[in-house]
Amino acid sequence: MTVEKVIRKGCLLVALPNSVDSPVEIFELPHPSNNESKKPIKLFVHDDKVYQLKIKKFSKGCDYNCSRDLVNDKYHYTSDSQTFKSTFLINEENRKDGHILEDGSILYAEKYDLTFNICGYYYRNNKVTSEDLAFITPCVPPALDMDTNFYTSSDYQEKLTNNHSENWEKIPPKLWESCLGKISHTVEEAGDKYYRIEPQMIVEWLLKKVIKINNNFPTSLKIPKSLPEDIASSLKCIMSCNLLVSLIPQLAYQDLIRHESSNLNIKQCFDSYDKYKNETLQTERERELLIKAAMSTAIPNGTKTVKKQPIQKAKVVKPKVAKGKGRIDGFFKTNKT
């Protein structure tokens, strides 16, 4: 269920920042990944911070584990694909005042870095139809933003309002400027500051995030213990990059994984892990071939049939029984008709 649908439900469970004490308007911006299958995100601004509205549903598996959950029969859903979850509202001081909500989800607000959406604007021509495509370098590179001019912060905001989404005007200037500054080359002239978004700055900004994730890596994501230490740390770096893939455009991800820096050499991590994977595959193939070869020596080849040595049976000489002419001697004789 989308945020829109939950809001339209009429009655909902919402977790808002403690300090929200005045009206806040919810607005949309295009999804920062430029993935056409993803809906715009819902945001609000409070106290010069941006918050994204998200939905949490328990008793529901994530899309990534969908097929595994299906095999394990882990989750069950209603005929209209909803979770088996509803809400009881109980007032402990007056249990007569009870309520039931058919919906069992929580709408909650989480801090959001708006720079992701400015990055999405910069790569606005780089659209994809599914997340898997982010991992592939496009055959025909899409046209990038060719505008090399520097703009003041307010001019840049106006540019995005006119060319990307009119909701950009809802961002307070101070907040907008701090987000724009993270991925822009800036020059100062006559006391004014001018900005130009640059892909190199986007990569540097993303790198800081990758380092943060890498240093505080989620414990539920397991790195195989069988891997050599250097390969395990490379895989950790790769997974840290991949945790950002749903938030950034395809080309930004491709630039990120080719980035080399003294803090964290992402390209080297990808290369060494790929090399290790290929080597392991090669060793695996060779082992399989050896096993096949070993097995084929025991099995006769189809074209060369080995002739069986005839087993000579020892002739058993049966002793002759004397024929008599008693009554019983003719008993087994066939009757001639």
Partner: peptide
Amino acid sequence: RTTYIMST
């Protein structure tokens, strides 16, 4: 966070 039941 402060949690509410909200109606629209």
